[in-house]
Design a binder for these strands. Structure first.
Lengths: 338, 338
DNA sequence: AATCTAAATACAATCGATTGGATTTTGTTA
DNA sequence: TAACAAAATCCAATCGATTGTATTTAGATT
């Protein structure tokens, strides 16, 4: 009673061979309906549950995809996971979720562990510390596919599923312009990060498109935490430039900036309008609610997962390495309603 | 090159037996230092990585704990997971995270899958749909321990790690009283749920302790979504009762209630003070920031994980079933500062 | 050098499921 | 009823690592 029943227990109980039991449980045409029924009934009776360790070992596949993200608590990542799971489950795949907590060491350990557990594929959004790619590059001549989503490394041969940050930045800026804003500042993030560079480029492109001249003094870079937004806003206002809008490269910094603005009794959006980026849940709750660029985590997850399944099923090794850009959507709220 | 190297490959390359390789890799004292070094060097050279499927199958343990939560995106749960992982990793255990998305069917499938993959233990916070416990009760005479955390089922024999909701409700109410409030309303949740009943009881106990009479008309029950809070507040004010505070059984409903209050230009906290429950991240960002009861997810996860490890290691089957209550902490913010 | 002990390593079974090939059973036809 | 094809079932090897037992080797002792 202590140990779980195996196919051998079922076989013995029925006086047949375990291979027949295995085939029956896998609904093989090599077993007749009648014996199948007997076996299924006995399996049920004994409370049999297939030992996936043994099954996977023998079959050399696990039907499992490993997912590594910086933190599951970030809304974007938990939506992405949702998208990944939905697609994977429909295809009969399991998903193992791991968080690196932005630490390279943990990320390395996690990747090693997933490989040791023989996942069939790896979806990863790397940590902020991941500047060294050895632990990922090692996968290149293995036959398990690796796909980056959102935060990627530039390793040729691997595929990426990324947000179209350029378009997001462009749309955000265009939205402000269409509201009549003519002096639009931009709070950007660390310029080493691709995503912030691209949002910035989108901003510049929209200005140019509308014949507004881009001016360096309208741009402030920071780590984009809430406090950074607050401080950037103070710096910006201190410049005494004409300003009627700010496009912040993320929501958090926009919230900080708005906080300072409200403290100065400057009207939002009438005097200064704001647009953020990411559509954090908090952005719809604050006052005024924040117009932002929704980067559908769900969709990016879904696409990444689909691509993964394709790569697993077609065994396309060596990997070709393609990059898919996911569209963004502007969500208009009160911080830019004029 | 395609297939991963095994201990047999290492053994063959060195002209020794695979059992010696296995022992060397597990740092057994039965292998001499010199051979160990040779083996380790060769393993490194070949890029050997232990096949956990085979290892776990043979050893009949996986060093893995399964965790099932309703959704990982909820702050409380992601903190709990953090707590679980931290403890588990230190003990050399892996954690598999799964979300039921509040669906019983998914929960059943997940539990089945985790068992099939032979996790060593199961930590679960059940879905809202989980009224039928068969899939969990089945674990009673298996030798893998099951522990509930936060949302539990009343199955004797299993252990629980729960929030002390009574104390939380008591503290929240006591805090308002100590601020001089005398007419304190309470927004409660579905009364079938243990947690809301207990918060309600804590509220009543605090009133009694302070010689304030409890009045039924000061209590409104709902599903506690933001919209519910908004509506409940309107209903409450319509009663034209003297009111100087509201203790809401969660943060979301408090936010909704405050929204309506602000719209009516009623001053918070001067005219009406608010206290929520859960300490959602958004609660510190809204204005005024919300005083709330912090139910440390991290701690509950840590304790649950520790209890799990104890049960796994001591193999204490049949399970005794104990219940641990986790303390809550009041976080004072502006919604109750007088 | 012969003998003995302890240390190091080799052998072989095992975990539970899968699967190609061999064997048996069943049913059909001459 | 003998012969045969097709259907059903059984046999045995396999996946990769672990581990109790057996064997070999090295070193010590007389």
């Amino acid at each position: 009673m202590n140990n779980k029943p195996t196919i051998h227990d079922i076989a013995k109980a029925l006086g047949i061979d375990s291979s027949t039991v295995s085939r029956a449980l896998n609904n093989s045409p090599r077993v007749t309906r009648a014996t199948k029924d007997k076996i299924l009934a006995k399996a049920e009776e004994l409370g049999y549950q297939r030992n996936m360790l043994a099954s996977n070992l023998r079959k050399n596949i696990t039907n499992t995809i490993g997912v590594v993200v910086p933190r599951i608590s970030r809304h974007f990542f938990s939506s992405a996971i949702q998208g990944i799971e939905e697609t994977a489950y429909l295809a009969g795949y399991n998903v193992i979720i791991c968080q690196s907590l932005e630490q390279l060491e943990r990320e390395k350990k996690i990747v090693g562990g997933l490989l040791a557990n023989r996942v069939d594929g790896l979806l990863i959004s790397v940590s902020m510390e991941t500047m060294n790619y050895d632990h990922l590059e090692a996968l290149k001549n293995s036959n398990i596919p690796l796909i980056f989503f959102d935060r990627h490394c530039d390793i040729p041969g691997f595929s990426n599923v990324l947000i179209d940050d350029f378009k997001g930045g462009y749309d955000a800026t265009q939205h402000l312009i269409s509201k009549g804003c003519k002096h639009i500042a931009h709070f950007s993030g660390p310029q080493e990060l691709e995503i912030y560079k691209n949002r910035f480029e989108g901003y510049k492109a929209a200005l140019k498109k509308n014949n507004l001249t881009f001016k360096e003094e309208y741009v402030i870079s920071s780590r984009l935490m809430e406090q950074d937004g607050y401080i950037s806003m103070r710096k910006l206002l201190a410049k005494k430039l004409p300003i009627d809008a700010v496009f912040c490269a993320n929501d958090l910094s926009a919230i900080g900036a708005m906080k300072h603005t409200k403290e100065l009794q400057i009207k939002i959006p009438d005097a200064i309008a704001f647009v953020g980026f990411s559509n954090e849940p908090v952005s719809s709750v604050i006052e005024p609610s924040l117009t932002t660029i929704d980067q559908s985590g769900f969709e990016i997850g879904k696409i990444a997962s689909e691509l993964m399944l394709k790569q697993i099923l077609t065994k396309e090794t060596p990997q070709k390495g393609q990059t898919i850009l996911i569209d963004t959507h502007l969500i208009e709220r009160n911080s830019s309603k004029k």
